[in-house]
Structure formats: structure tokens, C-alpha cells
Amino acid sequence: MASYIVKRVLRSFITLFLVVTIVFCLLRFMPVEGYFNNFDKMTPEQIERQLDARGLNDPLPTQLVRFYNDLVHMDLGESIKYRPGVPITEILAQRIPMSMLLGTISLVLALALGIPFGRLMTRYKGRIPDHIGTAFVVLIQAVPAVVYYLFIQMYGTSLAGLPLLFSRTNLATYVLPIISLAIGNIAYYAMWVRRYMIDESNKDYVKLAIAKGVNSRTLMSKQIFRNAFVPLVQYIPTSLILTLVGSIYVESIYSIPGMGGLLVKAIQMQDNTLVQALVLIYSFLSIIGLIIGDIAMTLVDPRISFGKKGGAR
């Protein structure tokens, strides 16, 4: 297993290198106008000087080597346009904790509600709780997220009287963003838990367990649920890690100083260093999430083992 993980990590580094390099090069092909706020009023000499100063006129390989050299020294550079002169790490250090905090709470909430909902729907399959649950899942999946975000905002502030604008120190302002972030995941987990549990309960081993006299309650919780949860285990680490990406809509609705939309803004502003740093971080985290997910799978499912061939049927 150890050698498998080493191989996996090395391969991930290659992926990461490719992603970052490609994005780096693509950014360099953008028109130079984007680098300046008052491009029209600048003389060609001024432009050239600026580009030279930022190293943008150097040959691509030189720029690339410089970037990786800085990276090895843990230097992500400074923002060039979003907040000129401020180190990227500082910008991230301010914003990441907020997004992660809200994201993690909402994910925990989603798991804590979505899983029991899914189990309830399975237990009452084809009856009223299942129909209500299915209606909820379909509604959430079908309606664009922005629409129910706005509904939550409207009714949350007018009926429940919760504050609209986010404030770090006022816990009441956390409620609406967390609900908004969680509601989609609640539907997601309820749907998949239900689906996998129903799949499992139609399997032969469940029939054998019934025939040998296991009562249905024990069977549901100890065997069907556990086995149904295996495929979900793989995705939980990724979803947890990716909470730091934040949510564009939710964070902008409630003015939360998080990561949501930062990448989009950085790309629009052609803030190369910021884009590079964000792409690097997001890819790195996704890859880590997948590796952890795969390792988690081997822990819960004995049929899956790393390295050995033909372990599973």
C-alpha cells in the first residue's frame, strides 16, 4: 500500500505540474491591455516599461523557471492588480478561513441531515415520507441554486428576521449562508443514500440475512446502510477540502469575505500571479482529496486493495 501511495503522489505531481504550466502559458497569451487600468492613456514606452518591470517581456521558459523557483521557496508572489503589492499568501490567509468555516459547518449539517433523510426515505420507500423526500430532492436539483438562495435570503430576513449582512462576530448572521450552502448537499446525500440503500437491499445477501432471521431494523442499520455508504465515502474528503473554494453566490449575497468568486475576479483582472496561485491550490487540493478518498475506500471495503492485482472480483 505504501508503495502505491508513493506512486500515486508522484503521478499527482506530474498532473499538477501540467495543469499549472498550461494555465501559466495560457495567461501569457492574453492581450496586454488587460494588465492596465488606463491602457488607452498610456504611451507605448510606458507600457513597455511596465511589462519589463513585471517580467512579462521575458521569454516564456524564463518566466516559467522563475515562477517554479519562487514556488520552491514557498513564494506565491504578489498580487499585481487585484490588490497590487499585497502578497498572495496574505490575501488567501484572510479569505480561506471564512470560506472553510462556513463550508465545513454546512457540510457537516448536510451529512447530519441528508443521511438520515435518505435512510428514512428508504425505510418508507414508495410511501409518504419517500414522496416528500423525492419531491424535495427533485426541486433542489431542478431549480437553479441562485433561485433558492434568493428565497432563503428573502424569507430568512423578512420572516425569521435574521440579519442580511454577514458579520464575523455576530453568529446570527451565519445562519442563512450555512442553510443556503447546506441545502443542496442535503438533497444530494439524501438522494444517493436512498439510491444506494435500495440497491443494497435488493441484493441476495440481504435476502439470505432475512431468511436466517435477522430483524429488518438491524439489517438496515448494520448491513444495508454500511454497505451503501461505501461509494459515498470516496467523495467526502474531496467535498470537505473543496469547501475552501467557497461559493460565489452565497458569499456575494451576504457579503462574506471568503474565497468565492476570487478566481473569476482574478481572471477578469488578469492578475496572473493570483490566478496561478489559485489554480495551483485548487488542483493540489482536488488531487489530495481524491487520494484520501481512495485510501478511505480501502479502509471500508476489504475487496479494494492497492497494488495487488485481482484483489476484487
Binding site: 441484493k203 441476495d204 445477501y205 435476502k207 439470505l208 440475512a209 432475512i210 431468511a211 436466517k212 432471521g213 430483524n215 429488518s216 448491513q223 454500511r226 454497505n227 461505501v230 471500508v300 471495503d301 476489504p302 475487496r303 472480483r313
Partner: peptide, 28 residues
Amino acid sequence: TEKEWLTIRGRQIAMVMQDPMTSLNPLR
């Protein structure tokens, strides 16, 4: 009721099914 059946299943009447490949819980 299931309670009634639990007095029969396994302890009075037991069953061996067709496909042994799927009759056992793969995770136990």
C-alpha cells in the same frame, strides 16, 4: 408480523440460495 416470522426464519426453516457469489455480505 416480522416478530412472528423471526420465530421461524433460521431456527425452524432455513434457506440456501442459488448464487453463492452474491449470497454473502461482501464487507463482513
